[in-house]
């Protein structure tokens, strides 16, 4: 934040389109000066700080199925863009099948902020520190995007282009995120290292997800995603490959954690140094793997 942060939000127009197509067209016509609005918890901070200068905020929370939270054993979980994090956490379906997602939400800011904050908003901000993004990545999240040309899908794995940058084009509105059905017995862990016990942004965030998978030599599939240690939220394919092809034991986890450490490229900033972050990626990845292993019943 700057010393010149605005005391209040600067002037803009709040726009509430009647349909998704109207919203997409408006956003496309006002490229560079309009932004879709979900919870607003990041947008407002950035506007007050003079970082965003949009003339229009286009409220898309009420459109189409953005308010939907649904689960189907065959199709999986669908979270509308407007579904706030507290609702995600409280959902028995999420708790039963995607506990990792609830755990990630719990680490975000405070309860009252999560009444507004959304997972889709977290994703669209494309912050490398986004706490829920790791879970969404390892759970195989796919975004439903509505643009001027209608609907399309964007897999999360190829969504991020850099800090704050995504593949979205003017007019694009992410309306929901979908997750395939979780493999039976899958388990995951999100370890967030912040400066405070709760509520802080992460210095390092490590998401690990694993399940028994007969198709792999080790009999297991493990994935890891890292927060705050690269320009974008980071999946670690090398870790997945290592644990697919080596017998699962403490040494394999240790080696996998080293691979995660090698994959990341943290920087020094006000929250932590690159050196500490590197060290923590190894330590916490190993710990998260062990915790996941335990959760898997081992």
């Amino acid at each position: 934040m700057s010393i010149n942060a605005h005391p209040e939000l600067p002037e803009f127009d709040y726009v509430r389109p009647a349909t998704l197509m109207e919203a997409s067209r408006f956003l496309a016509e006002h490229a560079g000066e309009a932004r879709p609005l979900l919870g607003g918890t990041d947008i407002f901070v950035r506007m007050r700080d003079g970082f965003y200068h949009d003339k229009y905020l286009v409220d898309v929370k009420h459109l189409d199925s953005t308010d939907e939270l649904s689960y189907d054993p065959q199709r999986g979980l669908k979270l509308g863009a407007g579904v706030n994090m507290n609702r995600v956490m409280a959902s028995p379906m999420v708790q039963a099948h995607y506990a990792l997602l609830a755990e990630a939400c719990r680490s975000v800011a405070s309860y009252q902020l999560r009444t507004r904050a959304t997972i889709v908003g977290n994703i669209c901000n494309a912050s490398p520190a986004g706490d829920t993004i790791g879970a969404c990545l390892v759970l195989g999240g796919v975004l439903n995007v509505h643009g001027v040309g209608g609907y399309r899908q964007e897999p999360l794995a190829t969504f991020f282009r850099g800090p704050g940058k995504t593949v979205l084009q003017p007019g694009d509105i992410v309306t929901s995120i979908e997750f395939p059905p979780a493999p039976a017995g899958a388990a995951g862990v999100y370890i967030k290292l912040g400066r405070n016990t709760w509520s802080d942004l992460s210095i390092v965030g490590v998401t690990v997800y694993g399940y028994a998978d007969a198709g792999r030599a080790s009999g297991y599939r493990f994935q890891a995603a890292l927060a705050s240690v690269a320009p974008t939220p980071l999946l670690v394919p090398a870790l997945e490959e290592h644990l697919a092809s080596h017998p699962i034991n403490a040494e394999a986890f240790r080696q996998a954690a080293r691979l995660a450490q090698a994959a990341c490229s943290p920087i020094d900033d006000v929250r932590g140094s690159a050196r500490y972050r590197k060290a923590m990626v190894r330590t916490l990845t190993e710990k998260a793997l062990q915790m996941t292993w335990k959760k898997l019943g081992n």
């Binding site: 934040m1 700057s2 010393i3 400066r195 405070n196 016990t197 709760w198 509520s199 802080d200 942004l201 006000v270 929250r271």
Partner: peptide, 27 residues
Amino acid sequence: LFESLQLKEGVLQNPSFVDYRIATSTD
């Protein structure tokens, strides 16, 4: 445990609650 004004050549690097952390109820 948490607090310092991080000054770099006289310029404050953490002028908000986001990065000037104070003890919360869970600390």
